[in-house]
Write a protein that binds this DNA or RNA. Structure first.
Lengths: 121, 121
DNA sequence: CCAGCGTATCGACAGGCATCGAAGCAAGGA
DNA sequence: TCCTTGCTTCGATGCCTGTCGATACGCTGG
């Protein structure tokens, strides 16, 4: 299947600038909004995924090769599984360059999360 | 077990002001930090819990009676189960006042999340 | 003291998910 | 052409969790 499968990004609208959901403190969440936000939080609700995400996010340029981040204490297939989950949640994008596959932090993801938390400073 | 069981708040230190973990983009997360953050995100990774939390957070004073928020489409025991999860995650506190039980958003929770997201405004 | 209401816990069940080894696919070098 | 290396997918397994009905607990009013 590779990368052609777009899973209709849960947390970001097409532009990537407008958050999907109103702030969590702005009123009662609709069922649909709650499900979108839950999907995003669920993607970050695993320690392994959190460590993978932070390793990528803290790399220069917000991107890293799998081989650079695979050391998180679980087997290599499991790492691949978690990266796929993060990709499906719209938090990461992936790109093959020759032998290696690079993962990048999807743009505006952090801003979308900030909007959910009502942190328009 | 009842409520005397304190689950050593995952995301907030004793004072409640200092976040537990470095920003997610500041470098590689330690195993311990990743587990604390994951526990918090996991608490918010369910649509029902998200709706309950937002209902409480959007109530005046950041507090609400269970009877005011219980209409989220699941049975009463399930609502109670989810509120317990949010309490154990340190996101909510509860207090009995006469017949009713009131839940409040734990102070500084949102600030702690903001710190994780590297949003030092 | 008892009946009634609001909330929490219990026990059970089904579905979801993290994990692994094995196998498959892609790219590059001998 | 084959082998090696990097990554993904597959199938199986065991644990975790969301859900419910039944039941227990706490409080208030009669």
């Amino acid at each position: 299947m590779s990368k052609s499968e777009v899973v209709e990004l849960p947390v970001l609208q097409d532009g990537g600038v407008v958050p999907c959901c109103p702030p969590i403190t702005a009123g009662e969440l609709s069922q649909a909004d709650a499900e979108k936000m839950a999907a995003m939080f669920k993607a970050l609700s695993d320690p392994v995924r959190l460590r993978l995400f932070s390793k990528i996010a803290s790399h220069p340029g917000g991107e890293a090769c799998v081989c650079d981040i695979a050391d998180v204490g679980v087997s290599q297939p499991t790492v691949s599984h978690h990266l796929k989950k993060l990709r499906e949640a719209g938090l990461l994008t992936s790109e093959r360059r020759g032998t290696w596959v690079y993962y990048q932090v999807a743009p505006s993801v952090v801003a979308a999360m900030a909007a959910m938390l009502d942190l328009r400073s």
